[in-house]
Design a protein around this nucleic acid. Sequence first.
DNA 1: TATGAATGAGAGTTCATTCAT
DNA 2: TATGAATGAACTCTCATTCAT
Lengths: 195, 195, 195, 195
Amino acid sequence: MAFTVRQNEILDVSLMIISEEGVQNFTMRQIAGVIGISEPAIYRHFPNKIAILEALLERFGQVHRDLASHHLKGKRLSEIKDFLSAILDNLAQHPALSAIIFSEEIFQNEPSLRAKVSDMMEKTQNDINSQLEALKINAFLPTEHITWMLLGSVRFLVAKWRLSNFDFDLSHEGKSFACNLLKIVPCKTEEGDEK
Amino acid sequence: MAFTVRQNEILDVSLMIISEEGVQNFTMRQIAGVIGISEPAIYRHFPNKIAILEALLERFGQVHRDLASHHLKGKRLSEIKDFLSAILDNLAQHPALSAIIFSEEIFQNEPSLRAKVSDMMEKTQNDINSQLEALKINAFLPTEHITWMLLGSVRFLVAKWRLSNFDFDLSHEGKSFACNLLKIVPCKTEEGDEK
Amino acid sequence: MAFTVRQNEILDVSLMIISEEGVQNFTMRQIAGVIGISEPAIYRHFPNKIAILEALLERFGQVHRDLASHHLKGKRLSEIKDFLSAILDNLAQHPALSAIIFSEEIFQNEPSLRAKVSDMMEKTQNDINSQLEALKINAFLPTEHITWMLLGSVRFLVAKWRLSNFDFDLSHEGKSFACNLLKIVPCKTEEGDEK
Amino acid sequence: MAFTVRQNEILDVSLMIISEEGVQNFTMRQIAGVIGISEPAIYRHFPNKIAILEALLERFGQVHRDLASHHLKGKRLSEIKDFLSAILDNLAQHPALSAIIFSEEIFQNEPSLRAKVSDMMEKTQNDINSQLEALKINAFLPTEHITWMLLGSVRFLVAKWRLSNFDFDLSHEGKSFACNLLKIVPCKTEEGDEK
DNA sequence: TATGAATGAGAGTTCATTCAT
DNA sequence: TATGAATGAACTCTCATTCAT
């Protein structure tokens, strides 16, 4: 939970490697080389390679949970927009993190990682879903469909950003996109939202 | 373009392996083992491993192109719904294919593959975008945002399906989802669509 | 002994490959590729790879024998000079052959090839040695030493030529070199030579 | 430059293998087998196979440079004889080294190795050439021709020795040969030499 | 005479991990 | 806390050769 300085260093470097070279090139040798220690030294800080990935997901999940609890108060539709914008802001500041947001596919084959990833994804869906339910805005389609639409859209934007080698302003583009997405969310009544 | 029987067999097996064990475990040894030939035998049919992945993308891209040209005639909004449904139907029938739809991230580090994947993604976006433009439906947000929303949503559904071990009916769920998505697409006038 | 058209074609191509890419890259695949036939087809003309190399040495040895019997009549010292010049002329016209002149080292580990190579080398030495003996010119050093000096010098020149990527005129340079070499051959009396 | 104990062990074994089995059979497996370690272990000491060959040439080149600087003082013709004798003595004591002296041909296709070999060869030629020039002995033929003759002769003797399976006394035979070679070097005046 | 398909053996190399120090 | 040395397993890929057609 609380990582040591060296552990955080290892996690940072790992993230960078995954982001820049892909999971396929994320090796103990790479980590050791970038940090400037020997490979066995890493095993003093993490029991094995999977533990590093787990910790990476753990740390990333914490950020997500913090953003959710900070933005989603359940009072306004616009809070979702702010939440999504905040997520994109965070990614824009730490592009390496965007390698993780697609971790479902990447880590799919390691059961322990897969569980962690599933939990994170579920959690975020539930957060947004609850907010939408609380606002009673789902007029003629299941609330979940709106949630999927919102999260899927954001993820798609991030995917495009990565494929483009981060060459557009994710934060700016994301804000406009999130805003427009929320506009097309069908509302029974908008009394919950700012008018 | 036109693959031999053995080539198609190799591609099918490759797809299955990637789908079930992930790209990380997609090895020549696996392919050979499943087919029941020796590893070197594979090299009679494909010059190397990357060529297999390229062929896989090629074959997948062809299906996508066919679906697009079959459904997107540019006359109705509902054609997009049918196109998305068709894509999901196809995936439901060949679950292994869903491993490929996320290949942007997976193959990101092999330049030749990356290019192929980018092209495919771009192509699909353009197809949908053109259709939307033709229908002049973008009222108060860029057409692209709608395109991203549609594709992102569908991809998200597929991601969920994969994470759930394919344990819901993607075809059925997808039809309902696509239908609802199209309903919230903001239209200036709907004369182009069925009334 | 008498090679078919296809066999000679295979030998020519083999020589070219060895010369241009080295023995390490001299493979059945290469031969087949250059000629434009399949690999198994080669086995219709030679029982195996070593047989090709043996034939190569055989063909090369024949040329040497012919040059020797044509030039070395045993009457004059200058005949040796002409013989050496002729060898270098032949190499200058068929640079690929120069890959073979060093075959002692290259083929050393295949006993059957090694024997063939030893024989060839011995034969040439004997030819020159006999000629020198016949002329009774070895004043104060063993005739063999002169022979070694002559052959070693010529081989060294060829080695230099190969290392320089054939960028000097071996024929011209060789003639001058051979001429100078013969001048320093110590002669008791020179009555056997042109005066 | 300064090799570890293990590195030197690997180099010694490599030399032995090349000498006994030829470069074609010089494999990582062979090295590992002879030393009694695993193949991957070798990679802790050399980054790859080529690096081993480079180190081999490096070590060999150093010996040559040392011999040259020790013997060639530029004062006497006999110093060249002593230099050549010393080279042959060294080879006689380490027969495996003789595999390297012909490496021009063997390593010709690996550019980095080829460069190293060319340099070595050039260096030795220059050393002898300078010495000859200093002694002003080239009466009626280019100094280079004498140099080529000397080096070519020595190389030829070594080649013969190898082909004969080292079954004559290279050191003894070489001394006599070198002595005779120097005798036939044409001198304008011999004041520079021992009288 | 030629080929397509296949293979056993083996190449160089990388990986996560262990262990004595 | 760190390292140097090592390893078993696995990787992609190449080789000469065989065999049914």
